[in-house]
């Protein structure tokens, strides 16, 4: 009797939870269909510009995270040094902090009155604010740690003995890294790339504070949704249309990466 009650309870909880996740997406689709002008908004210059900006900035962010984060992740996976746990904690910090804090922190470093921002403006007359580069910086700060963490655990799972044997077989450190380490850590690296990219696509708080909200240069999709919702005549209809685009793009990217990851897993 008690078992049956438990089963019923579990089923009920599961259905309620699933409904909670699915209903909002259903609502989105429902609203988009009923509004009638969704397609027009989705293909408007305002929307296209925001989508393009989001896609290319997040791609650049991922590339930068790969270039700078991969050596760091490998180093953290292999090296033992005093203060390592401190460095670990610092890398995790942006994951734990609200992105708005990251935005404020970026301002204090690279803003016009910032630690490095002020001398840079004095010497070169260059400011980061309201430029696309600021969008990328904001995205990199909040999303790169996701990649570094995943890559690090991927590298840790590769037996160090394999690398040592590769050295005795005449392989340089670089060749060993790309031929022995990366192929085995590849599923973890892919997962890190997806996480990093998704986080960059969704970045709002840090971008809003550090880069501002300017159509064409700093207004990524999340910012455009906020703007449409609050500022324009489009109102909710605009927000719905933009959200739907983002949803479709995210689903497509996620599917591609899932397939790639399982293919990589099979190869091993």
């Amino acid at each position: 009797m008690a078992d049956r009650t438990a089963t019923v309870t579990v089923i009920f909880l599961g259905i309620a939870f699933a409904a909670f996740f699915l209903l909002p997406f259903g609502g989105l689709v429902d609203r988009a269909v009923r509004e009638g002008n969704t397609w027009d908004i989705a293909t408007s210059e305002f929307a296209i510009e925001a989508l393009q900006l989001s896609l290319w900035t997040s791609t650049v962010t991922v590339v930068l995270a790969l270039v700078f984060g991969t050596p760091a992740a490998y180093f953290l996976a292999r090296a033992q040094f005093p203060g390592k746990s401190l460095v670990d904690g610092l890398i995790d910090l942006p994951i734990v902090l609200p992105p708005t804090v990251a935005g404020v922190a970026l301002l204090t470093a690279f803003g016009r009155r910032g630690l490095l921002g002020e001398p840079i403006e004095e010497w070169f007359g260059f400011t980061f604010g309201f430029r696309t580069i600021a969008v990328i910086m904001a995205q990199l700060l909040v999303s790169a740690p996701f990649y570094v963490r995943a890559a690090r655990s991927g590298f840790e799972s590769v037996d160090f003995q394999l690398e040592r044997v590769a050295y005795t077989l005449g392989a340089s450190r670089v060749r060993t890294f790309f031929r022995i380490v990366v192929p085995q850590a590849w599923p973890a690296l892919l997962a890190g790339i997806v996480l990093c990219w998704a986080r960059a696509m969704g970045e709002l708080g840090a971008t809003l504070i550090f880069a501002g909200n300017f159509q064409g240069s700093t207004q990524t999709m999340p910012l455009a949704i906020i703007s449409a919702f609050e500022g324009t005549a489009l109102g909710l209809a605009g927000a719905v249309a933009l959200s739907l685009i983002l949803l479709v793009v995210a689903l497509a990217v996620l599917t591609v990466f899932r397939l790639a990851t399982s293919a990589a897993g099979r190869r091993l």
């Binding site: 003995q161 040592r164 044997v165 022995i180 085995q184 091993l268």
Partner: peptide, 13 residues
């Protein structure tokens, strides 16, 4: 030199 370790360390991929 040729070096063979106890767990062999063959490259699994």
């Amino acid at each position: 030199v040729g070096y063979v370790v106890q767990d062999l360390a063959l490259f699994p991929h």
